[in-house]
Design a protein around this nucleic acid. Structure first.
Lengths: 262, 262
DNA sequence: CTCGCCCACTCGTCTAGATACCTAAAGGAG
DNA sequence: CTCCTTTAGGTATCTAGACGAGTGGGCGAG
């Protein structure tokens, strides 16, 4: 219960219209922005702040809850509240599905993570046939049932992405694509071997807060949104041959695209 | 203080490990997902839920606070808590900067919004020379000062996007680009007229929770992330001629890109 | 020295109020 | 009829305290 170092945080302004817990949140936010507290560093405990500001504990907790919602800090039960470190991000370039990257033998995720010096893992593999949702059916051109390939990607043990690929049964059934491990180069390599020469991809990107299930699967901290990416692969005949639905921890990714100016 | 319609919400499970306020949040979330409460509809008041579940008010508020963080509901002081309606989204296609779209005379934003039947506005215009931040300087190739063009875009009165364009002074100073209204086709049209023939754009996309300033500028509800897009325009000589830093309300946008498979 | 236990510290959850302020509708004064 | 006041029903903020439970260090037993 050592008192706060004086000067670290200021006083409240009783004349202000701003609610006390917001003022406290503002002070902490500013201290973090100014680098007074570094990444991973422990903030003053709730009890410290109760003493320093002379408010009740709920008020302090309200302040912390604001900062958590902003993704600035995270609380650890029994330890304290910490400045949330910015994890290393994974950059996705727009040429990541270029044919030349498929010749290697490993999946794009593994190759890329190895190059970045991280330790990649893939788990939660599930491959099965199922009924297509309305949305997937529309994107694939009115198919009823699809082959679904689900998997989760981890970097250095941290889950960062959860993806499901959907393929029409007439394309995928009975091929290596329906196997848990589709072989070198991934399913895009298999699709081309099967005569579905890929022409282009379309990607749709949204960002939103995660559902409770996504929080669990991706071990998301409070205040971390997800990037929801839906990619459709088209063959040279203009047919949609695959839809991949991906949910990514937003703090782990930067997406990068090149657009022609023509 | 009319009692809740029975059957709308269930009971608590006292044997569950799950905290009471989470159980309440779960029930409300499920009721919303199942369509028991529609978009814009008012949820039971805090007092109703206090009575129904036999808990204290703080517990109910905690439950609401979870749902707010998920972007599912929003509270209106003195009115109630409402299911947050999903606003119409603006789709950004990857060909939105194609040269053919520039010949029209109006800015891309206006044309597109008119086509979608919304009422577009642009405000908060500011054009001035300033010192380049480290990041902007790097992207533009070590320039010290830049012309900054700031503006905010609104759809039907709702702010959806806040953007700043940065251009090297040797390109922009003294040209229509330095005017508040750069003329038909926007600054990309002017750049081409000035001999900077555009070759391609690079876009970097991140998603995160907004800063307090962004919440204010974009009138963001709780639980709405922002999409942060940084676009760099390159001329045919490979020089970066503009960087545009855009912050978008994530619930108002779907980004769409086409990637070649080659 | 090592292991296990205890205790201090810390956040998590919940209660039971009090006061403030906002909104909307009803009702009364003009 | 119009406008203002009242009032009921909402959320916003804050207090004071209780108990639960995870963490980690210190200390004593072996």
């Amino acid at each position: 219960m050592s008192p706060l170092p004086s000067g670290l945080l200021g006083d409240l302004d009783p004349t202000s219209d701003r609610a006390v817990f917001r003022q406290i949140a503002d002070q902490l936010r500013e201290a973090i922005d100014r680098g007074r507290f570094r990444e991973g560093e422990k903030l003053p405990s709730e009890a410290d702040l109760v003493d320093h500001f002379g408010v009740s504990r709920m008020t302090v907790r309200n302040a912390f809850s604001i900062l958590q919602g902003e993704g600035l800090v995270h609380a650890e039960h029994g330890r304290g509240v910490f400045v949330r470190p910015r994890p290393p991000v994974r950059r996705l370039a727009s040429d990541r599905f270029a044919r030349r990257h498929r010749e290697q033998g490993k999946s794009a995720f593994i190759v890329e993570a190895d190059a970045a010096g991280s330790h990649p893992t893939v788990d939660s593999l599930e491959v099965k046939e199922e009924k297509a949702s309305q949305d997937i059916s529309t994107r694939l051109g009115s198919v009823r049932r699809v082959l679904a390939r689900r998997r989760r990607y981890l970097l250095d043990g941290r889950p960062v992405e959860f993806a499901t690929s959907y393929l029409p049964l007439d394309i995928a059934r009975g091929t290596p694509i329906a196997e848990p491990n589709p072989g070198p180069g991934g399913i895009y390599a298999r699709l081309e071997e099967l005569g579905h020469h890929l022409d282009h991809f379309e990607e749709e990107i949204r960002a939103r807060m995660p559902s409770p299930a996504e929080v669990k699967t991706l071990h998301l901290a409070a205040g971390v949104p997800v990037i929801h990416l839906i990619r459709t692969a088209f063959d040279t005949g203009g047919r949609a041959v695959e839809v991949c639905d991906t949910v990514m921890a937003a703090d782990a990714y930067v997406l990068s695209y090149q657009l022609p100016a023509t």
